[in-house]
Write a protein that binds this DNA or RNA. Structure first.
Length: 821
RNA sequence: GCGAGAGUGGCGGAAUCGGCAGACGCGCCGGGUUUAGGACCCGGUGCCCGCAAGGGCGUGGGAGUUCGAGUCUCCCCUCUCGCACCA
């Protein structure tokens, strides 16, 4: 019956037809009244052909886009490439191919693969961030940030690989070593460009309530990354110099317990103060040692190393002079790079005090307890209880007194309540070739001058020497590129020779999709406001912090600039799991890489997509070894299923309406429509597919029994369309004889009355244990149910003459008879 | 250490509201078809006892709430992920 499933025969054919019919293009027709839906996938990095992670993510994203369209939406489902970045330069260095042709060749390859996989992208909006027409607007946006004071230059310590002669992003430093060559990374002070994301820290937290469907763990990661702490800034002074030094503390109520003071080893005041204190000779080797240890391994930095600077700090609350140290356990990046140390109530300070024989003074203790002898302490005390040894605050409850202490500090001019964030400004400059040049000119007389908008883009030279091994970056060492006239005064000046972090490029691509080819700005506000915010964003959890946080920041800046009418770009986010092999990530060195395109060639695009989607919940990892086995020639179960769908739908079409469709099949069809629709709403593609398999089995059984199944088959084919677009189209247009694409058809509707079962299985329990079942009508009443239960011989046997104390009846599902035991 | 999530057959997983645990699929077993292999079709398949009828056990472990717990509460164990001297 039916017909054979030969995907290689029709998949390429429908791919061509869909391109000709332009079925995947979003409609910009003003008369089109369908609600708009923006289905966005995180755009890929073109470092070769598509891998399994892409196959998984985009298969899910395509189900979202295709099902939204069938359910009546005007869908925007664009694609592009995050095309700047280090891998292109690595390839250039390794293979001697320039970054641009290498990148574009990979883009073309990935586009072919996407088309072959049946991804429903609107190709008219394709973009690549390395296109000059794109990065022109990246530069334009940078200049708007610059004008607003949100892009600025300052000297900062950065990661520098002495072997590769380049700065590295934090992500490229693995346990203190260069990701590429393994050399120990150095810290260097370089003048770098930053975006002032810290200005938006509070808003990034506050707007979380707009992120209505984000995975909880991503929200948590962002919250932790932003790291908001309430506390106080307190001004200490150095006795020997009189200079004021601020510290941040979350516990100003412990100020009376300060017994020493610690600077980060990277604090700029350390060398000067140690020279003054006459201890630089001992301090400097400690700092060198500490830096080396911190770089080599984070674990080694656990020791409470440190050195006395020979100077003293004055505690503003009681005038006490305490010794000042430099120690690696104080981070330069957090707070002010200096701390007041309260060893009685802080584990780290306590460990340091014990190591260096420093006094410990308890200032908070449990209410009513005897004074605590610091010498008997083996660990820091919990800091809740009653304040003691704290001058005017003795007897105050803590931590409830924090606000009171902070207010007192402010009145006394010794500090103030404040909020501190862990988030730091975004270092965006890179000394690399393959990125968008920073559109700034450095003029000896005018300073930092913006390149005028009408001179954009500042193009990359295509004759740069992008090899490594020199001290200067490729743009800096180019013989002519950087030499320009100052746009302000016309005098001799030089271009900024840094390029932008690729995360800048990817922070606004989603806006550009709305206005493809627009030449008067990065996008048209009306286009963006029409399509955005994004209806559903799909991509990897590896971007949980950087990309997602940066794009949220960009959106808020664009809002403040009046360029868009919303403050959150993607209220709904879905993360696919990883595709791993035998419990480990796939990698070349392990030789366990499975690629999607060979699967597509062997079994067809539909089977590849279904393997991904049926393997388990979308957000869970897929262990390929477990779902596919080790034999690549073994037919995937989903492929066999498609074979049965073809046989069944084909046979149902041949039989048509000549035989009646049994009501049980009709009911199952409606139930399946409801179930699959609900599953799509919660991204449970695996259970949606299993429901389609159940329907398939029932259609087959109906046909075997001589019944008709044409309506069921039609619904099945339509519901199959988002998951297996080629097979569905073949059956729809060829076997079912429909003239137009299944992907333009309307999602089947269900009759709520037919979703409810006519007959259900009622279970009879005795003392909560299943003893018997009966098929009953769905509208059975309680008395009838009880009567049935009491009449059951199995129930009677189980009751065994004991006294019945309670009868629980839940029509139409269950009766539970409780006996006295 | 802190934070988040998870633990169900041989395997991937299902159970959406506290009500038949194991849907669907893979694998395996038996049968059919086939020159053979593959493919396909039919049946079986949580574990234990039993020829069977039937019975017992069963969702990481332990307690609790409930007529009833994979699901809710508490404690413990294990695993995964993220952060990790954040003052």
């Amino acid at each position: 019956m039916g017909r054979r499933y030969e995907p290689s025969e029709f998949e390429p054919r429908w791919q061509r037809v869909w391109a000709d019919e332009r079925i995947d293009e979003a409609s910009e027709d003003p008369a089109d009244e369908r609600p708009r839906f923006y289905a966005l996938d995180m755009f890929p990095y073109p470092s070769g052909d598509l891998h399994m992670g892409h196959a998984e993510a985009f298969s899910g994203g395509d189900v979202v886009a295709r099902s939204a369209k069938m359910r009546g939406h005007n869908v925007l489902h664009p694609i592009g490439w995050d095309a700047f970045g280090l891998p292109a330069e690595n390839a250039a260095i390794k293979r001697g191919v320039a970054p641009a042709p290498w990148t574009y060749a990979n883009i073309d390859q990935q586009e072919r693969s996407f088309r072959r996989m049946g991804m429903s992208f609107d190709w008219t909006r394709r973009l690549a961030t390395c296109d000059p027409e794109y990065y022109r607007w990246t530069q334009w946006l940078f200049l708007r940030f610059f004008e607003k004071g949100l892009a600025y230059r300052k000297a900062a310590p950065v990661n520098w690989c002495p072997n590769d002669q380049t700065v590295l992003a934090n992500e490229q430093v693995i346990q203190g070593a260069c990701e590429r060559c393994g050399a120990v990374v150095e810290r260097r002070n370089l003048t770098q460009w930053f975006f002032k994301i810290t200005d938006y820290a509070q808003r990034l937290l506050d707007d979380e309530d707009q992120l209505i469907q984000w995975p909880e763990r991503v929200l948590t990661m962002q919250r932790n990354w932003i790291g908001r702490s309430e506390g106080a800034r307190v001004t200490f002074s150095i006795e020997e110099t009189g200079e004021e030094i601020e510290v941040f503390t979350t516990r100003p109520d412990t100020l009376w317990g300060v017994t020493f003071f610690v600077f980060s080893v990277d604090h700029p005041a350390v060398e000067r103060l140690a020279q003054l204190g006459g201890t630089w000779g001992e301090v400097e080797p400690m700092i060198q040692r500490a830096r080396a240890a911190a770089m080599a391994s984070r674990e080694e930095a656990d020791t409470k190393e440190g050195a006395f600077l020979g100077v003293h700090a004055v505690n503003p609350v009681n005038g006490e002079k305490v010794p000042v140290f430099a120690a690696p356990y104080v981070l330069m990046e957090y707070g002010t790079g200096a701390i007041m140390a309260v060893p009685a109530h802080d584990e780290r300070d306590f460990a340091f005090a014990r190591q260096h024989d420093l006094p410990v003074r308890v200032v908070i203790q449990p209410e009513g307890s005897e004074p605590i002898d610091p010498d008997s302490m083996t660990a820091a005390m919990p800091h809740d209880g009653v304040m003691v040894n704290s001058g005017p605050f003795d007897g105050e409850p803590s931590p409830a007194s924090i606000a009171k202490v902070a207010a007192w500090l402010q009145r006394e001019g010794r500090g103030e309540a404040t909020v501190n964030f862990r988030l730091r400004d975004w270092l965006l400059s890179r000394q690399r070739y393959w990125g968008a040049p920073i559109p700034i000119v450095h003029c000896p007389s005018c300073g930092e001058v913006a390149v005028p908008d009408d001179h954009l883009p500042v193009r990359l030279p295509d004759d740069a020497d992008f090899s490594l091994g020199d001290r200067e970056s490729p743009l800096a060492r180019h013989p002519t590129w950087k030499h320009v006239d100052c746009p302000a005064c016309g005098g001799e000046a030089t271009r900024d020779t840094d390029t932008m972090d690729t995360f800048v490029d990817s922070s606004w691509y989603l806006f550009r999709y709305c206005s493809p080819g627009y030449e008067d700005g990065p996008f048209r506000r009306e286009d963006v406001d029409r399509w955005m915010p994004v209806g559903q964003y799909t991509g990897g959890v590896e971007h949980a912090i950087l990309h997602l946080l940066y794009t949220r920041f960009f959106t808020k800046v664009l809002y403040d600039l009046g360029m868009v009418g919303f403050t959150e770009p993607f209220p709904r986010l879905m993360n696919q799991g990883q595709v791993i092999y035998d419990g480990a990530s796939m990698s070349k060195s392990k030789g366990n890489i499975v690629e999607p395109m060979p699967l597509v060639e062997r079994w067809g695009a539909d089977s590849m997509r279904l393997m991904m989607l049926f393997a388990g919940p979308f957000e869970d990892d897929i262990d390929w070894k477990l779902i596919a086995g080790e034999d690549p020639d073994r037919r995937p179960g989903v492929h066999s299923w498609l074979g049965r769908v073809f046989a069944a739908a084909g046979a149902a079409a041949e039989r048509g309406a000549s035989a009646p469709e049994p009501s049980s099949l009709v009911r199952l069809t409606h139930k399946t429509i409801k179930g699959v629709t609900d599953d799509l709403d919660r991204f449970r593609f695996n259970t949606a597919i299993s429901k389609l398999q159940v329907l398939t089995n029932e259609i087959r059984a109906t046909l075997d029994a001589g019944g008709g199944a044409i309506d069921a088959a039609r619904a099945l084919v339509q519901m199959l369309a988002p998951f297996a677009p080629f097979a569905a189209e073949e059956l729809w247009r060829v076997d079912l004889g429909e003239p137009a694409s299944v992907h333009r058809s309307s999602w089947p509707a269900y009759d709520p009355a037919l979703v409810l079962d006519e007959a259900v299985t009622m279970v009879f329990q005795v003392d909560g244990k299943l003893r018997d079942k009966a098929e009953v009508s769905a509208d059975i009443d309680e008395a009838g149910a009880l009567e049935l239960a009491r009449a059951s011989p199995k129930v009677l046997a189980a009751v065994d003459g004991r006294e019945i104390v309670q009868e629980i009846v839940r029509i139409p599902k269950l009766v539970n008879i409780v006996t006295k035991r």
